[in-house]
């Protein structure tokens, strides 16, 4: 026992000395844990695909073409697909960073054990967010492949859709973990649904903002999912502009703020 290394000297290599890098161990723990139920995790990827077939192809047949980015008419299914890609990135990250983090925090008491190791609260926050981003990618990568197979990708800019989807997942996961640390009971998760369902339905996922009255449009423009939808839609349909950098910076700012709050809150809740 006396030979146990103290926290500051635990990192042998230069890699481990990076802030938060030790958190990779917690990600590894989740990967091992979920290996037994990989089918449950992976099957979540079909939900946005069902929506793509139903809304994109089914309702799309009733709509024909809509005005896409840059004012060009695009088939409705090509318009809605990048929106659903953003949703898949959001959902994958949101489910893990809220429900699962709450379970680990309150019931499994996982972080109490983790904090007894060289990992600190900031490592926990970073790795939980990192894991949720991986879950988001688990949903958005297959979706992107299906989009390509259905001929819904119009431009090589779509290569950037993957990092952009990861950015959506990052902003979602960081906000999700930060807010989850304030949750008092499972009933509070009703609020998560109360936010995520309207986000999904109203963030320009299914139709352009021009459908709304001006006031509503301005509000919707501030939602993080809307920014993600626009970034992905412009990239996939091949109409990128410098605007996208601002939108990406907005998402990154939400992510960084969430990360900072999450680390501090976990420390406050568990390191007395």
């Amino acid at each position: 026992m006396s030979s146990r290394p103290v926290r500051s000297t635990s990192g042998g290599s230069g890699f481990s000395a990076l802030p938060g890098a030790r958190g990779i161990r917690l990600i590894e723990r989740h990967a091992r844990f979920y290996r037994r139920m990989w089918l449950v995790v992976a099957s979540g990827a079909v939900e946005p695909l069902f929506y793509l077939l139903s809304v994109g192809v089914g309702i799309g047949g009733l709509i024909g073409t809509v005005t896409g980015p840059g004012g060009h008419p695009v088939p409705y299914r090509a318009f809605v697909a990048p929106g659903l890609l953003a949703v898949s990135a959001l959902n994958g990250a949101l489910n893990d960073s809220t429900f699962n983090v709450y379970g680990r925090l309150k019931f499994e008491k996982l972080y109490e054990s983790v904090l007894a190791t060289p990992l600190g609260a900031q490592d926990v926050a970073l790795s939980e967010i990192g894991w949720a981003v991986l879950r988001g990618l688990l949903y958005s990568v297959p979706f992107l492949i299906v989009m390509a197979a259905m001929g819904l990708i119009a431009s090589p800019w779509a290569l950037l859709a993957l990092p952009a989807a990861a950015l959506v997942s990052f902003a979602t996961a960081a906000a999700g973990v930060a807010l989850t640390t304030y949750m008092k009971s499972w009933q509070d998760f009703e609020y998560v649904m109360l936010v995520s369902v309207p986000l999904f339905l109203f963030s320009g996922t299914f139709y352009p903002l021009s459908v709304y009255p001006n006031v509503v449009g301005v509000i919707v423009e501030w939602t993080p999912l809307y920014q993600g939808v626009v970034i992905l839609r412009d990239l996939v349909l091949g109409a990128p502009s410098w605007d996208l950098l601002w939108r990406a910076a907005y998402l990154a700012a939400i992510g960084v703020a969430g990360l900072a709050v999450a680390g501090r809150r976990i420390a406050k809740l568990l390191l007395v």
């Binding site: 309702i59 709509i63 649904m193 339905l201 109203f202 299914f206």
Partner: peptide, 25 residues
């Protein structure tokens, strides 16, 4: 605990699908 999802949920769908998407259809 269930009042929001049991009342607001379908209204959201009606608004987004019926009125929003409906304007395109």
């Amino acid at each position: 605990a269930s009042i929001w999802s049991s009342i607001l949920g379908p209204l959201f769908y009606l608004g987004a699908m019926g009125y929003g998407l409906g304007s395109l259809v």
